[in-house]
Amino acid sequence: MGRYAIRRMLGAIPTLIVISLVIFTILELAPGDPTGTLPLTVPPEVRENIRETLGLNDPFFLSWLKWMRQMFISEPLNAIESVTGLQIGDGERLRIISWASRGPAVDTIVERLPQTLWVLGLGFIFGIIIAIPVGVVSAYKQYSIFDNAGTVISMIGYSVPVFFTGPLAIIVFSVWLGWFPSFYDTTHTVSDWSSLVFQMKQLAMPVAVLSLFNAAALSRFTRSSMLDNLNEDYVRTARSKGLTENRVVMRHVLRNSLIPVTTLIALQVPGIFAGAIVTEQIFRINGLGQLLISAINGADYPMVQTLTFIFAVLIVLFNLVADLIYGILDPRIRYE
């Protein structure tokens, strides 16, 4: 198992290098220009000078190598320095600089993480907490009123997009009822009871909308996995041994049914970090999704490259984690 994991990780390195090269090529070919957002009153010579100072006219391969060095040497060293407080070398090294803010791209990403993790993480956790019991009950009482209602609600949750439920929530809870603010204040600090209440208020709508969406898909998946297992021979054996129904369902069926569900959950974890572009836009949570989309619109390529590459790393990593979990949960599977 350990050897398998190491082999997979080593195998991921060339994959990631190829991914970074693909990202670079796509951005090189993409239209758009960082000076495009400047007012028309800025003359062309000035624009050309700005492009030159940003390094936009450097040869493609050179800028890729430069970025690789910054990403794999400068940024990790800088991260170690800022966490441990130690200084490695003279501390002077070229970091990945955003074209839009002229500030270090990784610092902006770190600044954006809290609000993205708050909203998407909570939406994810609440989604799981809701989905699994609903899926279990729906499967056990197949075709009951509860199951049918669950089917309808999860179909609505799954097929109605966030860009509809989001504004709907704002109209109902902000405009009509006035319960929650319609934008998210990222500078808000939780220090006492009333600030915690405010934080919960500004989280309520986006988390609810995301939970509904996440729970819808996952509850269907749990339900079908449970149904598969309920008809297995081992369930009949367990019942014929005289086990209580509770024990049969919770210990035998549920555990086996959760194997594919857990894998699915592990595969979705990178999505938490990638942010939710639409949800963040609607509720004005300036997280990683909003950062990515504004970087793409502003042709801020160093930021786009860094963000997409970090997402790629997370996806590769959690694919491996999903495989390993599968091996742990299902003893029949052995990796050699």
Partner: peptide, 10 residues
Amino acid sequence: ETTPTTSGGT
């Protein structure tokens, strides 16, 4: 972490 981060971005 909603407090201002100490990294250079802020």
